[in-house]
Design a protein around this nucleic acid. Sequence first.
DNA 1: TCTTAAATATGATTATTATCATATTTTATT
DNA 2: AATAAAATATGATAATAATCATATTTAAGA
Lengths: 143, 143
Amino acid sequence: MFSNSTKYAIKAVLYLAVNSSEEKKVVVNDMAGLINVPKAYIAKILQELSKKNLISSTRGPKGGFYLSEDNKKAKVYDIVIAMDEEQRMNSCLLSLKKCNIDNPCSLHHLAYNEKEAIIRKLNNTSLEELVEHIKTGKSVFPI
Amino acid sequence: MFSNSTKYAIKAVLYLAVNSSEEKKVVVNDMAGLINVPKAYIAKILQELSKKNLISSTRGPKGGFYLSEDNKKAKVYDIVIAMDEEQRMNSCLLSLKKCNIDNPCSLHHLAYNEKEAIIRKLNNTSLEELVEHIKTGKSVFPI
DNA sequence: TCTTAAATATGATTATTATCATATTTTATT
DNA sequence: AATAAAATATGATAATAATCATATTTAAGA
């Protein structure tokens, strides 16, 4: 459903959400191993997220990546969109240009409501909330 | 959600379901234009589907592709699986090896039920039924 | 101010997916 | 039997996604 880049981005951001703060930055060299993603690859993704202000960073010694309080309020869907998955998530299962309830493709009624529901939930759930779930044992940090 | 190959396969099979029979075969040269998929590409996909007995064919003059009555009873999900999308459909959103309700990844509860519902419907809907929907105007043939 | 540890920018390589091309085999028709 | 029209088998090319590598910039601390 998601590309590797998007999965890695979500994992990385979640890792930061759980383990970082402005006082406790995380260095890409450490993170790669901890979330089990190739170092050079995750580095590139982190830079992308940073440029889009979804994560925070400072350079130089004692630098690293972290989530500001503001960053933690972002929704999961913000990360998905940042990684350019809007099309994949939102488009018709059979790539009909204008697929909607008035002009539904043959698979529309098999998936539309469910896909909408997923998007709605991704868009209603903040990183903070996911952290809460992890901390209370309702879900597991994905390695 | 689906790869291009899978989308094309579904479109092609649907086209045959609506427009072909053992007495009325369709030739790849015609079909390509009719469903708006590159000829050489759809040819390859049809051969794949044929080898897996999801569509029928005969060679030589007056030959072509068609769906037997049996072929028409296949489920949409059979086509999806034939195109090797099992992984993409069934795997965890974050690629957790063992993601389930007892060990749920952080996005599990945001998508699991919906994804299951889609798979269930794809697996409960036959090509015949989709044809019926098209013929009664409940859905539109996807070009 | 020099050194060093970090992110950033940029681009190269590899793998996968999508697309194209063509020689071979089968079969109906003449 | 010969011809021609179809699928089949196979492989080549192109585009995109995934992965790797490295030079540059920034900032802390000696």
